[in-house]
Nucleic acid binder design. Structure first.
Length: 371
RNA sequence: GCGGCUCUGGUGAAGUGGUUAACACGUCGGAUUGUGGCUCCGAUAUGCGUGGGUUCGAUUCCCACGAGUCGCC
């Protein structure tokens, strides 16, 4: 198997795990946060900047790249790594999520999903086989199985049927994989404990390189999400990486890690950066965020965070300056916030890992939540 | 000097003799979780150039004054 997980240490008092993910493009310390680079770029940043801030694996998107510039073109370019000039890890989402979130018109059948491109409306088709083959053409280090991300709320029968189909698609995804292609399976089950358990057990039983937990953080109350997360991780194998898809915010990352999750991805840090928000520690701001456009920063000539080593803070770009840039719609403002937010999460993940190694994850968590 | 026209929030502007003066931008807040640099949601004129008058009631009608603008001498 080209991608493997090595468990280094498990926190003595929680389910938190510190490990190493081995991939064709390097070994990466877990728990890890993967910045999202949907269209073969983490918006606003160059690969060098990404590497400098400590990113190890980034997430690319089958749906978007499949439509434009197409998998064949990327293959002719020499693969996604070469095409976008990124030599570290790339995990690609299967496209299942976007078929449901971006396309207004689609039809699900046992075979796959017929949908209209959000770019030009053209009729397109994605199936487990097509998705896996597409990800192979990209040369992704980790390919994701094709699944349906069930919306919230969803009734029991719909959830049960959809999850069962996702399971059949999981087997087909695995069967479609080329030799050496690492594929992660995805658990679903909606917000029903029995279906979550069943899905988790099923995905765990297949020969995937890792297991993902999907369908969470889709609008449900956090108590429900944490409960589902617990049920899902409980039945996943210890010797494979667990990946919680689409999460998240610092509080969710902590809760995920505590329940034994190793990998995360989320648009949050990069998207909110482009909307003028800086993620900061609760010590810097009780809310854990600075809405940099707010008037309170008009004449604030301090950096976003005094103890941050990101490019923006290290060079002492001030809050007042970044506020001005964002208000004036200047690109560098988005870039500085993106650099900061991603660096913030890198340091955050590293701090969690150290806490696990020291068997003091509970203290880390309590400290974060201000207990 | 004479004549015409116009004066509504930070800005551009709708509008009506009768409860809360459209809308847009800006400003001030908020949202954002397997990415549309997209977007969405709140708040924001106790007052309609100033002073009188008519009227049960005037931002709306009338008069005077002021300011701006155009034209003529």
């Amino acid at each position: 198997m080209s991608v493997t997980y090595e468990l280094i240490h498990k926190d003595k008092f929680t389910g938190a795990r510190a490990g190493i993910l081995h991939t064709p493009h390097g070994d990466f310390l877990t728990p890890i946060f993967m910045p999202v680079g949907t269209q073969a770029t983490v918006k606003t940043l160059s690969p060098d900047e990404l590497e400098d801030l400590g990113a190890g694996i980034i997430l690319g998107n089958t749906y978007h790249l499949f439509l434009r510039p197409t998998a064949d073109l990327i293959q002719r370019a020499g693969g996604l790594h070469k095409f976008m000039h990124w030599n570290k890890g790339i995990l690609t989402d299967s496209g299942g999520f976007q078929v449901f979130s971006l396309s207004t018109i689609r039809k699900i059948t046992e075979e796959g999903v017929m949908f209209n491109s959000h770019i030009d409306g053209a009729k397109k088709f994605l199936s487990p086989e097509i998705s896996i083959q597409t990800q192979f053409k990209f040369g992704s280090d980790i390919s994701m199985a094709f699944d349906e991300c069930i919306p919230y709320p969803a009734d029991y029968n719909y959830t049960k049927n959809s999850t069962a189909r996702t399971h059949r698609w999981a087997e087909r995804s695995l069967n479609a994989a080329a030799a050496g292609q690492a594929v992660f399976g995805i658990c679903q089950g909606g917000m029903y404990e029995d279906l979550r358990e069943e899905s988790s057990k099923f995905i765990a039983s297949l020969d995937f390189a890792g297991c993902a937990i999907g369908g969470l953080s889709v609008g449900e109350p956090k108590e429900i999400m944490y409960k589902m997360l617990e049920v899902s991780t409980k039945f996943l194998p210890e010797n494979k990486a667990r990946y919680l898809m689409g999460v998240g915010t610092p509080d969710h990352l902590i809760e995920g890690v505590m329940r034994g999750v190793d990998m995360f991805d989320c648009v949050f840090p990069t998207r909110v950066a482009r909307n003028g928000m800086a993620m900061v520690s609760p010590k810097t701001s009780a809310r854990g965020r600075l809405v940099i456009k707010n008037a309170e920063f008009t004449e604030d000539f301090t950096p976003l965070e005094s103890d941050c080593d990101c490019y923006a803070c290290k060079k002492n770009f001030t809050r007042a300056y970044i506020r001005h840039l964002v208000r004036a719609d200047e690109i560098i403002g988005l870039r500085l916030l993106t650099l900061h937010n991603l660096r913030y999460l890198q340091r955050f993940m590293a701090a969690m890992r150290q806490a696990i190694l020291d068997d003091r994850f509970n203290e880390f968590r309590a400290d974060f939540f201000g207990a």
